[in-house]
């Protein structure tokens, strides 16, 4: 079992947005690293959905409450406001219908935390400008024909979508650098140009 300090940098960013003693649904929870961290450090009542059966079984074997499923198909079963936070980490760009997923997240959760790789980052822009082929980076490592990322977006795209869907952005953090311990740097200047990744804390406008 990993010590709380070992958590991946992008997950730490998300964890910092979660208040203690709350109910959390982590969609695409992988091997349960974030859920376990939240349970231990914030006494969170956590649930997970994971697409891969091996990940699910690993989570359950760690004592986490996890089922097999995905963001596109399995959110409709939950009642309204079943959770305080619904988390979707680096997965939105791989969903079939990101608009619906976002709306569902904010139906079943009072808040949503979403992170995604920023396609507006200057390195990606440079790649496309000079090479003229689909950019490949550490975060987007697959060639265009094999990538699961079918709905990539920039920070500005996502801001616009939130506006259109009546979603309030409570916090937005853009970061760059390696996702290792202490590797991330927050980016405040031109985030859509210098942010490699963005993490949003969202709620529904009322």
């Amino acid at each position: 079992m990993s010590a709380p300090s070992d958590i991946r940098g992008d997950l730490r960013l998300i964890a910092e947005m979660v208040d203690p003693d709350t109910r959390v649904l982590d969609i695409g929870c992988g091997d349960g690293q974030l859920l376990e961290y939240l349970g231990r450090s914030r006494r969170v009542d956590g649930r997970g959905i994971e697409i891969g059966q091996a990940g699910v079984n690993a989570c359950v074997a760690r004592g986490l409450s996890v089922i097999q499923g995905d963001a596109d198909n399995d959110l409709s079963a939950y009642p309204d406001e079943a959770f305080d936070y619904v988390i979707l980490s680096l997965t939105l760009q791989a969903t079939r219908n990101p608009r619906l997923v976002l709306n569902e997240m904010l139906r079943i959760g009072r808040r949503a935390i979403v992170s995604f790789p920023n396609f507006g980052h200057w390195r990606i822009r440079r790649w496309l400008l000079f090479r003229g082929t689909m950019p490949m980076t550490d975060a987007l490592a697959d060639p265009w024909y094999a990538t699961p990322n079918i709905h990539l977006c920039t920070i500005r795209d996502f801001d616009n979508l939130c506006l259109e869907l009546g979603i309030r952005i409570e916090r937005r953090v853009a970061v760059s650098g390696p996702a290792t311990e202490g590797g991330y740097r927050p980016v405040s200047l031109f985030p859509n140009l210098f942010g490699e990744q963005a993490v949003y804390l969202l709620s529904r406008r009322r």
């Binding site: 059966q53 699910v56 089922i67």
Partner: peptide, 8 residues
């Protein structure tokens, strides 16, 4: 919103 795990 029950606490449920499911393994296949």
């Amino acid at each position: 919103a029950a606490n449920v795990s499911f393994v296949e």
